[in-house]
C-alpha cells in the first residue's frame, strides 16, 4: 500500500510533468497580465483619448483631472484597506459631507485653518471608529448594514447641522490653498494624495499592522488562531477609512471654498469602483495602494474625456458600470487561474 505512493510509471510522469509545466507558464503569464491589466488599460485609455481630443493632454486639463480626482483617490485609499479585510465602507460620502459641515461650523466660530482642518479630519475618523466598533462588537455578519446606516445618519446629521443651507460659503485661506491652488504647476491636492498614499503604503507593506491586515483579509479564522488581534485590525481599517474621508473633506472644501451637506454624493460608489477596477479583489486579502490610485485615475480620466468629447453625463455612469463588470470578471478569472495552478502543481513530479 505504502509503496504505491513512491512508484509511478516514469513515462506517464514525464509527459504529465511537461504538460503541467507548460500549463503553469501560461497561467503565470495570465496572472501577470491580470496584475498589470488596469495600469495597461489606463495607459491605452490615455493614448486613445489624447488621439481623439488634442485638448486632453494640455497641462491645464491634466491639472484639472488631478484636482477633480484627488478626493476620490484619497477616499479610495481608505476604502481599499476596508475592502482588503473583506469589508466595505458605504458611509464615506456622507461622512465627507458631514465633515465639511462640521468644518464650516467651526469656521463660523474661529478663523483658524488648523482648527477647521482638525475638526474635519477628526469628525471623519470618529465616524469611522463608530463603523468599526459597531461592526466588531455588535457582532455583525458584514459591515454593509452598519456603514449603510451611518451613510443615512451622517447625511441626515449634515443636513440638520447645516440648518437648511445647501452650501456654507467660506473656508480659511490655508484650506483654500490646499484644495484649490497649485505649486510648481502641480495642484496642491496632488501632494495630499501623494502624502496619504505614501503613508498608507508604508503602513501596509513595511509595518506589522499591514501584514496583519492582509492576513485578516486572507483568512480571518486563521488570523484569530495565529493570535492576531483581528478586532483591533478591523476597527483600525474603518478608522483610517474615516480619516481619509475627513482629509478628502479638507481638499473638497478647500477647492470649492465651501462646506455642503450635499457633498460626496455617491462617493462611496466611486471609491469602491476605483478600488475594484484598479485591480484589488472584492473577496479580500488582495490589493494594494496602486490599485486604488490607478482606479481613481481611470474614473477621473473617463469622466474628463467624455466631458471633452461632449458625451452625455448619463453615459459616463454606464461606462464606469461596464468597467466594473469587467474588473469583477477579471477577479473571477484570476481565482480560476490560481485554482488551475494548484492542480497543475500537484500533477508535477517534484
Amino acid at each position: 500500500m505504502v509503496n504505491i505512493a513512491g512508484d509511478r510509471p516514469v513515462e506517464a510522469g514525464m509527459t504529465s510533468e511537461v504538460r503541467a509545466h507548460h500549463g503553469l507558464s501560461w497561467i503565470s503569464l495570465g496572472l501577470w497580465l491580470l496584475g498589470v491589466g488596469p495600469l495597461l488599460i489606463l495607459v491605452v485609455l490615455v493614448g486613445v483619448i489624447a488621439a481623439l481630443t488634442p485638448d486632453f493632454l494640455k497641462p491645464g486639463n491634466i491639472a484639472n483631472i488631478v484636482s477633480q480626482t484627488a478626493v476620490i483617490a484619497i477616499v479610495a485609499v481608505g476604502q481599499h484597506l476596508v475592502i482588503l479585510t473583506r469589508g466595505i465602507d458605504l458611509s464615506v460620502g456622507a461622512n465627507l459631507a458631514l465633515a465639511t459641515v462640521i468644518g464650516g461650523l467651526v469656521y463660523r466660530q474661529v478663523d483658524s485653518a488648523f482648527l477647521v482642518m482638525l475638526a474635519m479630519v477628526l469628525a471623519g475618523g470618529a465616524v469611522g471608529a463608530i463603523n468599526g466598533i459597531a461592526y466588531v462588537f455588535g457582532r455583525l455578519p458584514h459591515p454593509f448594514i452598519i456603514t449603510l446606516a451611518m451613510l443615512s445618519i451622517c447625511r441626515g446629521l449634515a443636513l440638520e447641522l447645516a440648518i437648511g443651507h445647501t452650501t456654507m460659503r467660506g473656508m480659511p485661506d490655508a484650506i483654500a490653498v490646499i484644495g484649490g491652488a497649485s505649486s510648481f504647476g502641480i495642484p496642491n491636492s496632488f501632494f495630499i494624495v501623494f502624502g496619504v498614499a505614501l503613508l498608507i503604503f508604508v503602513m501596509a507593506k513595511a509595518m506589522v499592522w499591514g501584514r496583519w491586515t492582509y492576513s485578516v483579509g486572507g483568512q480571518p479564522d486563521a488570523a484569530l488562531r495565529m493570535g492576531i488581534p483581528v478586532k483591533g485590525v478591523l476597527i483600525s481599517t474603518y478608522v483610517i477609512s474615516g480619516l481619509c474621508a475627513g482629509i478628502g473633506a479638507v481638499v473638497l472644501a478647500g477647492r470649492t471654498e465651501a462646506a455642503s451637506p450635499l457633498y460626496g454624493n455617491l462617493l462611496e460608489l466611486d471609491t469602491i469602483a476605483a478600488v475594484i477596477i484598479g485591480g484589488a479583489s472584492f473577496l479580500g486579502g488582495r490589493g494594494h495602494i496602486g490599485h486604488a490610485l490607478v482606479g481613481a485615475m481611470m474614473i477621473g480620466v473617463i469622466r474628463n474625456a467624455l466631458n471633452l468629447l461632449g458625451v452625455d453625463v448619463f453615459f459616463q455612469m454606464i461606462a464606469i458600470g461596464l468597467i466594473i463588470v469587467i474588473a469583477v470578471e477579471a477577479d473571477v478569472l484570476r481565482n480560476h487561474l490560481e485554482g488551475r495552478a494548484r492542480v497543475l502543481q500537484a500533477a508535477r513530479v517534484s
Binding site: V208, S215, A222
Partner: peptide, 30 residues
C-alpha cells in the same frame, strides 16, 4: 495557511520579526 501571503509571510504570521521593540507590536517595521 493564508492564500494571499508567501510561504515566508505565512511562516511568521502573528509572530513577525520586527523592530524597534519599544513600539507596540502592530506599529513595528517588518
Amino acid at each position: 495557511l493564508f492564500d494571499n501571503l508567501t510561504p515566508a509571510q505565512n511562516f511568521y504570521c502573528g509572530r513577525e520579526i520586527a523592530f524597534p521593540s519599544w513600539l507596540p507590536a502592530g506599529l513595528r517595521f517588518l
